[in-house]
């Protein structure tokens, strides 16, 4: 009985299994090295895709350790879609459940940040909100409004110095990470996603806004974290980076 695609696939991802039956080189010789070309193609294609997707993880772990991790990951979590731009979505959960690395607790957040950068890169385009509209509204109406953020705008909560870790591993001469909680906001002013460090109060404000809460409710959440929370710096950052798609004032 010749090998079907189920047997072919099983042997592809497990090099300890024998080559499927019914394969030939046309001259009656063993096909081990020939089948190994497909095994190698699949493993290399998927591990290279992970290296491209997670350059900061590669930098933090070193190439050899990342290669070992990637080979294990591709066997347990092969892609579930031909859209390789989304491959690696399980990496944060995989890292937090992976005993040899689970002591490096910020790795999952780094993986989330790298996934979000790619997601932002491919996100839908959006005409930015015209900020001059705000000048025509009184403060009460502004605070009763809700915001729609551009699809490329992504928040990654973290209790680790996530922005500092990202910068230290991507920019030469960047300062060493400081011990602090540092959530990250990704914006895409045009085509290039850019991470920004946030305070925990700013992250609390954005979390509420992304849930559809009004500015006044978001303000309460932020002030519960830090009574000195000042909205203006965050609002400026959002407007300057084209992160606000729409501003919805309440109907009278």
């Amino acid at each position: 009985m010749p090998a079907d695609q189920t047997q072919f696939r099983t042997a592809l991802l497990d090099p300890t299994l024998p080559v499927p039956v019914g394969l030939t080189d046309g001259a009656g010789q063993p096909t081990t090295k020939r089948f190994a070309v497909y095994r190698n193609n699949v493993t290399v294609a998927l591990t290279e895709a992970l290296k491209t997707a997670f350059p900061v993880l590669v930098s933090l772990l070193g190439r050899d350790s990342f290669d070992q991790l990637a080979r294990l990951f591709v066997r347990t979590h092969p892609p579930t879609s031909p859209l390789m731009m989304h491959y690696g979505a399980h990496m944060p959960a995989f890292l937090s459940d992976f005993p040899p690395l689970s002591h490096i607790k910020y790795l999952s957040d780094v993986a989330r940040l790298e996934l979000a950068l790619r997601q932002s890169y491919h996100a839908a385009d959006m005409d930015p909100f015209d900020a001059s509209r705000l000048g025509r509204l009184d403060a009460d109406r502004i605070m009763a409004s809700t915001l729609t953020l551009a699809p490329a705008t992504i928040l990654i909560p973290s209790v680790w110095p996530l922005f500092d870790i990202w910068r230290y591993n991507t920019q030469s001469g960047a300062p060493k990470p400081r011990a602090m909680a540092q959530p990250v906001l990704i914006t895409r002013a045009e085509f290039d996603p850019e991470p920004h460090p946030l305070t925990p109060a700013q992250a609390a404000w954005l979390t509420k806004i992304m849930d559809g809460a009004t500015l006044v409710a978001a303000q309460d959440s932020a002030m519960a974290v830090d009574p000195g929370f000042d909205l203006s710096a965050l609002l400026t950052l959002l407007i300057q980076n084209n992160a606000i798609a729409n501003f919805t004032t309440p109907k009278d």
């Binding site: 010749p2 695609q5 189920t6 072919f8 696939r9 699949v42 294609a45 031909p82």
Partner: peptide, 17 residues
């Protein structure tokens, strides 16, 4: 060629009988 098995995408062009 084939490249998908069930819900898995194997990212290679695999051979057919």
């Amino acid at each position: 060629a084939w490249s998908t098995h069930g819900t898995e995408f194997l990212d290679d062009l695999l051979p057919l009988p």
